[in-house]
Design a protein around this nucleic acid. Sequence first.
DNA 1: GGCTAACCGAGACGGTACGTCAAGTCTTGGC
DNA 2: GCCAAGACTTGACGTACCGTCTCGGTTAGCC
Lengths: 212, 212, 212, 212
Amino acid sequence: MSKPTADATDRPDVISRTGPRRSESARLAVLHAADDLLVERGFAELTIEGIAQRAGVAKQTIYRWWKSKVDILLDTLADDAREALQWRTPESDTEAEEDLKAHLRRVAGFFQDPAGQVLQALVGHAQLDGKTARALRDGFLREQRERDIAGLRALLTRSPHVTVGDQAVGRLVDLLFGPLYYRALVLGEPIDEEVVEATARAVLTLARESAA
Amino acid sequence: MSKPTADATDRPDVISRTGPRRSESARLAVLHAADDLLVERGFAELTIEGIAQRAGVAKQTIYRWWKSKVDILLDTLADDAREALQWRTPESDTEAEEDLKAHLRRVAGFFQDPAGQVLQALVGHAQLDGKTARALRDGFLREQRERDIAGLRALLTRSPHVTVGDQAVGRLVDLLFGPLYYRALVLGEPIDEEVVEATARAVLTLARESAA
Amino acid sequence: MSKPTADATDRPDVISRTGPRRSESARLAVLHAADDLLVERGFAELTIEGIAQRAGVAKQTIYRWWKSKVDILLDTLADDAREALQWRTPESDTEAEEDLKAHLRRVAGFFQDPAGQVLQALVGHAQLDGKTARALRDGFLREQRERDIAGLRALLTRSPHVTVGDQAVGRLVDLLFGPLYYRALVLGEPIDEEVVEATARAVLTLARESAA
Amino acid sequence: MSKPTADATDRPDVISRTGPRRSESARLAVLHAADDLLVERGFAELTIEGIAQRAGVAKQTIYRWWKSKVDILLDTLADDAREALQWRTPESDTEAEEDLKAHLRRVAGFFQDPAGQVLQALVGHAQLDGKTARALRDGFLREQRERDIAGLRALLTRSPHVTVGDQAVGRLVDLLFGPLYYRALVLGEPIDEEVVEATARAVLTLARESAA
DNA sequence: GGCTAACCGAGACGGTACGTCAAGTCTTGGC
DNA sequence: GCCAAGACTTGACGTACCGTCTCGGTTAGCC
C-alpha cells in the first residue's frame, strides 16, 4: 500500500494534523478508505467525495496528491499486488509442476483478495478509458509481466531443464495466465483446481516440446 | 430490450416521426448513434444525452425502451458479435490446425472491429458493475461459450479423431481463448500470428494427450 | 428576467412539479428565499446553495434561469422597488413642498424595507464588480432616474410654476437624492425629518432661483 | 492594524527577510500589492492568497497583522485619503464660493485616484458586511466627517459671515457631499463642473438663508 | 557569545461554495 | 399511445480561497 511508517524504535506517533510536509496519516487514511469502499460498494459507486468522507479528509487533500480515483487505486495496488503475485523460489527440490500449480493457486486466490479486486476493477476501467489503460500498464502491468517472464523462465530452467528464448517465454506466460484472467474477467467464474492443473500441464508440455 | 432488426433487406429509413407503435427508425438511430459514439469517443464519454442528441431522439424515448447505455450496447452487440465469432465449418477437408488458427485469427480481428470494441467495453464495465456483469453473461457470454464448446468439439472430433468430455472441452476453450482475451484486455497488445500459432498448437497437443 | 404571474382569470394553481414549461412556483420560491435570506443574514452570507436549499429547489434550476445571485436580486427588485419609489400625484392641491417631503419620507422608509436592503446591497456590490454595476444601471437605475426626473419636473411645474431644462432637473435630482443615499450608504445613519426638510427646501430654493 | 510609515523621508527598502521584529518591508509589500491588485482587478478578485503571492509574502504573515482584506485596505486608506480629502485653508482672501468649489473638485478627483477606488470599494463592501461597515465608520468615516464639519464651518464663518450650529452644519455637509457620492457610487457617472457648481451654490444659499 | 523568542517563507490541512455535467423522472402538446 | 422537447431533483465533479496549523530557517537582544 505504501511504505510503512518507518520501523519504529522511537516513532513519535503524535499525528501532526497539518504542516508543510505531507501528512502520512492522511495518505494512509485515503488509501484504506478507497480500498474498503471498493470492496464494500464496487468501483462504480466509488467516489472521491465518498473516499474523502470515509477517510475524514478534505476533498482538496485528495486532489492535491492524486489525479483521480484510478490514481488512488494504483497506489493501493503498488505494494499489495506486487507481493501477492510474486514467484516464490521453492525451499526444497520439489517438482516443477507442483511449484507452478502452487503459483497458479496463489494467483487464483489473489482474485478474491481486496488487492485482487482492485486490479480487476482497474483492468476493467482500462477498457473504458485510455488514460487508465496507460497508467495501469506503465505503473504496474509492464513490470509485473517482466517478473512473470523471469519467474517462469527460472522455473523452466530448473526442472524440465529447458532453455527458451524471451519471446517464447512470453507466449508461455500468455498461455499460463490467459485462462485465469479469462475465467475471472470474462466468465466471472471461479478458477478451480482443474483449470489450474490443465493450464500448468499445458504450459509444461509446450515448453518441453518447443525445447526439442 | 428491443426487437431484432426484423424484416431487414431494406432498412425503412422512412421516418414516421410518431404514432402509437414503436418507431423503428428511432430504434435504429439510437443503436447507430451509440455505436458511432462509442467508437469515436470511447465508453467513458458515452452518455445517454449524447446518444439522444446524436440520434435526434428524446431522452425519454431511450429510457422507454432501454434501461441504460449498457442495455443499448448489448443490443448493438447481439447481431454483430454472434456472427463474427461464429465457428465456420470447413469447406473442404483442411487440416484441423489450420482451421483452428483461422478461427483464432478471425477472433483476433474481431477485437479491432466496432463490435469487438463494444464487447471489450462491456466486459470492462462488467468488472465495475454487477448488473452489467449479469446482463452481459446472461445476454451474450453464456450462449457464446456454448457455441465455442460445440465448435471446438466438432473440430476435435473431425481431425485428431479425439473425443473429449464436456468438462474437458471447457478447459480447452479456456486455454484457447484465454491468451487472446488476456492480450487484448489486460496487456492491450495485438494478437499476432505467433500467439495464434502457439495457442492453437497448445490446445491440439493437450487434446491429443488427454485423449490418450 | 421573468414576466409577472400575469393577471389570472383562470390560473391553474395546480403546481405541476415539472415539465417542458418553466415552473412558476419554483421561480417564486427562489425569489422569496433570496429576499428572506438577504434580510436575515446579509448579502455576504447569501449563497446560491443556501437559496436553493431554502427554496426547496435544485441548484441547477437556479443556474438555468439566473446567472448569479445578483441576477436573482435584480429580479426581486424589479417589481418591489419600482412601486415603492414611484412619484405619487397629489390627490388634492397640496403644497409642492409638502408633496416633496412626503416623497422623500417614502424614499427614506424604503431603505428600511426588504426591497430597500436589496437595492442597498446591489449598489454596494456594484462598487466591487463591474458586471453588477452595469446590470444594475441598465436594469434598474437608468429607468428609475428617468422616472425621478419626470416626477420632480412635474412637481416643480405644478406649484412653484417654474420650468427648468432637463439638465437642470438632473442636477436637482442629484441634490435631492444625494443626501439620502449618502446618509444611508456612506454614513449608515437614519434619514430623519430634519434631513428631509433641509433637502426639500434646498431643492425648491434652488429651483426658484435658477428659474429667475 | 499597523504602524504608519513612520520615519519617512527614506523608505527602508532593505529587505530584512526575517527576524524577531516586524518586517517593515513585508508590511509595505502587502500594502502595495493590495492596492495594485485592487486597481488592476477589482475588489471581487482581490484575495488574501493573491496579495500574499504578489507581495512575495507568506499567507500567515498577512493573517498575523491583519484580520481580513478589508483591514488591509483600511490601512492603505489611512494615509492617502486623509490627505486627499483635507480642507485647505485659502492662501489669500479668495471668495468662499471659489474655495468651496475648489474643494469639491479635489474630492471629485479623489474618486479617480487609487485611494479613491479603495474608499469606494470599502463603502461598497460595507453595504454587504456589518463588520466592514463598523470598521470603516470607526476607522475612517467618523473622523472624516468631523474634519468635514470643521472645514465647512470654518469656510462659512469666514466669508458669508454666518454662524451655524453643529447640527445645521451636519445637514449642510450632507447636502454638500451627498450629490458627489450619489453620482459616484449610485450612478457611476462623472462629477462634472456643473454638479460642483450647483452643489456649492446650493449649500451657500442654504447657509445664508438659515442664518437669517 | 550562545540562547531563545518572535518573525519569516512555504505550504499542507479541513472546510465551504462555486459553477458544470449527466442521470433518471415527469409533463406538455403535436401527430 | 408514441414521440420531441425540455424542466425538474439529485449527486458528484474538479476548482478556488478561506482561515488554521506546522515546519525549518533566520536574526535581534538579553544573559
